[in-house]
Design a protein around this nucleic acid. Structure first.
Lengths: 197, 197
DNA sequence: GCGCTGACAGATTTCAATATCTGTCAGACA
DNA sequence: TGTCTGACAGATATTGAAATCTGTCAGCGC
């Protein structure tokens, strides 16, 4: 019965995510988090050295959770072009869903992304690695023709920035968006494909 | 000697741009503009119906001026791939130069872009038309293989958003930027090129 | 001893009073 | 007659005092 009462980083993160969702990034305070856990705010500082580190840890958890389906897709097998297309569309869909369902957490993520914090950088690097995995599978399958897989994966990530970077989130709801995504993906796939003679 | 004293939209725009540069978008007021012109602020409202319309008109002038070299490039002749590459690199360079040389005006433009105002939309449409011009030249030359020129031009514009949208301006100074631009451009050009057998 | 509390200093945010700004318009002036 | 002014109402921004927050730490209680 005691373990439910012990103050763990995990419980703090849970509570912080709740508080962020309830009050938003701008209003949430460490005191609020402590209050939600029924402890003093000093105790929170025993587990996280600063408010920023707490915020970052919550963001990391949130990003990792969002990232899970993408990891699975990258690790699966099948023809690389279809897999890449599916991967990109899934990433766009995840982001778009988040911006609708969890706007406060998304605003937190947006703030993080704008501060260009290392949590987000690490997350992006992970994404690029997943793209690179699919691309190298494609090279092995003979369907892609790529000189530098890592750089090309980065280029694919950069080229699609409009549909996954939170700074562009307002545009995602526009009616012309899907067809613009189609055009972009087909241009990128054409650029990756080996020219068969 | 009288014509120098007449209050014209042109003179107001000139003064507004000065005031914006001096005080920044956040601080600049219509009263400041009027003071710079030595007239009452009521007179300014005789030529522009609102502060917003004045701000937009200044932005339009500024954008049009920045756009001039790109129009020339699109209208010139020569092999389309080289021309497209040159066009893109010129656009990136113009933006990057602006962000260094004219930070207050750039902040104004950033604010405009974030408000997604129609001035900026019109400007982007113009840019896409220029890309489309180069692409259709490429098709005529037999070096590009494109189903829908307009949609593809939009896709090229979207794919390069990271290097021309002001929301990403902070990233432009990073040392890895040039090689990422190289990778992106070469991927896009490969996607546009006709596969010769 | 170990984990937690609560008081504290300095930084940051809030809030309400005050000042400034936007946009209008009746009337001065040429 | 047509252009410009300056006073005005309502909206917005600034300011500084008070409240709250962040991060620390000596000490309490288990």
């Amino acid at each position: 019965m005691n373990e439910a009462v012990v103050l763990t980083p995990e419980r703090i993160l849970e509570a912080t995510e709740d508080v962020l969702r309830r009050f938003g990034l701008a209003k949430a305070t460490v005191v609020d988090v402590a209050r939600a856990l029924d402890v003093s705010h000093g105790s929170v500082y025993r587990h996280f050295p600063s408010k920023a580190s707490l915020r970052d840890a919550v963001a990391k958890r949130w990003l990792d959770r969002a990232n899970e389906p993408l990891c699975k897709l990258a690790a699966s097998d099948g023809p690389a072009p279809e897999r890449l297309e599916k991967w990109l569309r899934t990433m766009f869909a995840i982001k778009q869903k988040k911006v609708c369902d969890d706007p406060e957490m998304f605003a937190t993520y947006l703030a993080l992304a704008q501060e260009a914090r290392e949590v987000v950088e690490a997350y992006k690097d992970k994404q690029v690695d997943l793209v690179a995995k699919i691309l190298s599978d494609g090279v092995a399958q003979g369907v892609f023709e790529i000189e530098n897989v890592k750089a090309t994966a980065r280029a694919v990530f950069d080229a699609t920035v409009r549909y996954h970077h939170p700074a562009h989130a307002e545009e995602w709801a526009k009616p012309e968006c899907p067809s613009r995504i189609d055009a972009l993906i087909s241009l990128l796939l054409k650029g990756l494909r080996a020219c068969k003679q």
